[in-house]
Design a protein around this nucleic acid. Structure first.
Lengths: 201, 201
DNA sequence: ATACTAAACGGACTGCGGTCCGCTTTCTAT
DNA sequence: ATAGAAAGCGGACCGCAGTCCGTTTAGTAT
């Protein structure tokens, strides 16, 4: 029953990961999860991580590229789950429902997803400059674009971008945690936005 | 014809600014404008500024609080101008036109404003955490909120927040400069968004 | 003029993200 | 088993934002 641990993102020509590299990746991921669990993502520093994982700082950056990259790695599981939901799951989030309902469900799902993973998302988004080289973001954008096109929006690409920013993690988290807006108000307003946007003339 | 230079933001009980402080403020502002002019806001470092203004680093931070604060100071002139435009200027941007037209004009104005001052705005927004303690942002938000309420939106406060993020400087600048979207597409899409959002059932 | 006080000053210092590069380890080919 | 090459490693190092605190200086009161 021994299983080979899956290494994500490994493109076709796999030069085979070295054993020490694999070990260190494991160490780093565990240490990172510990640190996040005990003090939150915001407080995690790359030095502390390197230290806790008994690894050089260079190794940390070789592995994840940047702090944002680390956060994205930490997010990737729950993110894939959410992605799976809107791509293959049951309607109204998944395929089978009309665009209006799917967009409403998408926004609601996204809002709750953000509220669960807000710290990580904010830390991951802080990259600045990438922000849209992030596959997950591109995928969400494209998903909305397609639904908007189906619904007759003239420039679905740009509209999807507007909606993407309307669902910005920082915005959602701060609305709820800093400005005291309830999640319900957020989802209600999203529903109002999409409903008005898509109802036919 | 001698005029006393206006010191902005000075609340009632003015303990009178010391002469050396005034002189340093002038130096810093000039140096900052020079630096921005020659290499862009992004490249401006607080050390370089202090050095160029022949002033200690502590002085820079005493004056502006943070890099974002400095950028906001640099912006304040053009920002007031834009604010004046939508608060007191001629319709459709200013009062006198219906909310629909005013919102469209507001978004268009904002897009062009951002494209002119994008670097400064991005650098100013990087504050993170404040972002809404910024008076200018609050004012824009409130402006939209009022127009949305007039137009019958159920939760104008939250909707205004969505629209605020849809007009985020980073979004606009990156759409145009990184992703190659023309300003016209942006304004057209904004018009489509607002038009659909506000047309009555 | 003198003495006093509070504001202002400046630059050394800290903490963090990120880079660099000489050294070490693992894998592969023989 | 051995040697060579490449991937991996680690920590000193850099640049930058922001803080701290002992020193200087501009106004004020006498």
């Amino acid at each position: 029953m021994s299983s080979i641990p899956i290494r994500p993102d490994v493109p076709p020509g796999a030069p085979h990961e070295r054993s020490d590299a694999a070990r260190n990746r494991e160490r780093l991921l565990n240490a990172a999860r510990d640190l996040v669990a005990e003090s939150g993502a915001e407080a995690l520093t790359m030095d502390a991580l390197a230290c806790k994982a008994h690894v050089g700082k260079g190794t940390v950056f070789r592995r994840f590229g940047s702090r944002a990259g680390l956060m994205m790695t930490l997010l990737s599981d729950s993110e894939s789950e959410f992605q799976h939901g809107f791509m293959f799951g049951p309607p109204p989030l998944g395929p089978g429902a009309p665009p209006l309902d799917r967009l409403i469900a998408f926004g609601e799902g996204r809002i709750f997803f953000v509220l669960e993973n807000g710290e990580l998302l904010k830390a991951a988004g802080a990259a600045t400059r990438n922000r849209f080289d992030v596959p997950a973001t591109k995928l969400s954008h494209r998903h909305m674009e397609i639904l908007l096109r189906e619904a007759g929006i003239v420039d679905p690409w740009v509209m999807a971008m507007s909606l993407t920013y309307a669902l910005d993690p920082e915005r959602i988290v701060d609305d709820v945690r800093v400005r005291g807006i309830s999640p319900t108000r957020l989802t209600d307003s999203w529903r109002e936005l999409i409903t008005r946007l898509l109802r036919s003339a």
